[in-house]
């Protein structure tokens, strides 16, 4: 009986260790990730719908979410444009230092966010290397939403490059050649043949950059100035609520953000599934 049930669940194999490996994996996954996340969901459900709604639609919460999303969308858009250019020059051109440039793109993944945060603040503060040039122009960067965008652009910089790059490497130049033999100019050829194939990768990169930016905390809090309603991001609001021992408030904002993250994860998976169907490869 047990054997029959098992064979319906998994295909038989001569390799041992399935039970041990899967058992450990599930136990560890549950303890570290699933149960704690469930605790968050249970706690927010315990608030009751009206209370949750009151906390989630609080003016300060709404403007924090608006800033987190607005700045993240702008940062992801900036990185989509420049990420596309970077992927293009790294894949298609040969120039001195190309391999070093390729390596340095992952810096935001490797550099602790707090370090990035204080470094960016030092640069963009009114007396910083860049800030001192912006101030006379009447442009305040640090301690404003612009600073938030700058920090988010830094932390989400690699996503578009790293999703577009491998896809671009795989694209055979024969499509561009075919367009050229049919009379298409260079720009026409790239727009009509390369861009459609890169679209899923660009969308995935944008979504990944967005997802990372919305949750980002460390690099932003130093440069943002954290003025409630102006330059206060949603993750910071969670921390502030916690420091006020307002667990209900923290839980409500966190649950809302978690729901949004899961929605974005779903969108990313849908893009990739669509891309596999349409183009025969993932983004």
């Amino acid at each position: 009986m047990a054997t029959a049930a098992l064979s319906r669940f998994r295909q038989p194999s001569v390799i041992p260790g399935f039970g041990l490996a899967l058992g450990f994996t599930l136990a560890y996954l549950s303890l570290i990730v699933l149960i704690p996340l469930a605790a968050l969901i249970v706690r927010s459900a315990g608030l009751g719908w009206t209370e949750f709604w009151r906390l989630a639609t609080d003016q300060r919460t709404l403007s924090a979410l608006k800033l987190s999303f607005g700045a993240s969308v702008i940062a992801a858009a900036i990185n989509t444009v420049f990420g596309m250019i970077l992927a293009w020059i790294l894949v298609r051109y040969r120039f001195p230092g190309r391999r070093i440039v390729d390596a340095i793109i992952d810096l935001p993944f490797a550099l602790p966010t707090a370090v990035a945060g204080i470094a960016l603040t030092a640069l963009y503060a009114p007396n910083g290397w860049i800030g001192q040039w912006a101030t006379p122009l009447g442009l305040k960067i640090a301690y404003t939403p612009i600073g938030v965008v700058i920090a988010l652009t830094f932390v989400s910089l690699p996503f578009v490059v790293r999703t577009v790059q491998p896809v671009l490497e795989e694209i055979d130049t024969q499509y561009e050649e075919a367009a050229a033999t049919l009379g298409a100019g260079r720009l026409q050829a790239v727009i009509s043949t390369v861009l459609p194939s890169l679209l899923p990768a660009l969308m995935t990169g944008f979504a990944l950059a967005l997802a990372r930016s919305v949750g980002e905390y460390g690099s932003v809090i130093f440069i943002a100035g954290n003025i409630p309603g102006v330059s206060e991001i949603a993750p910071l609001l969670i921390v502030i609520r916690l420091e006020e021992f307002n667990y209900a408030g923290a839980t409500a904002v966190a649950a809302l953000m978690l729901a949004i993250s899961f929605a974005m994860l779903l969108v990313i998976n849908l893009i990739q599934a669509w891309s596999r169907r349409r183009f025969g490869h993932g983004a």
């Binding site: 919305v214 993750p235 969670i238 916690l242 667990y247 994860l265 998976n269």
Partner: peptide, 23 residues
């Protein structure tokens, strides 16, 4: 299972800390 393993990447770090406080 593979999707669940990737889950922590899509959770804000602040929430990652918060869940243990709630627990």
């Amino acid at each position: 299972l593979v999707t669940l393993i990737d889950l922590p990447f899509s959770v804000s770090p602040v929430i990652s800390g918060l869940v243990y406080i709630l627990l």
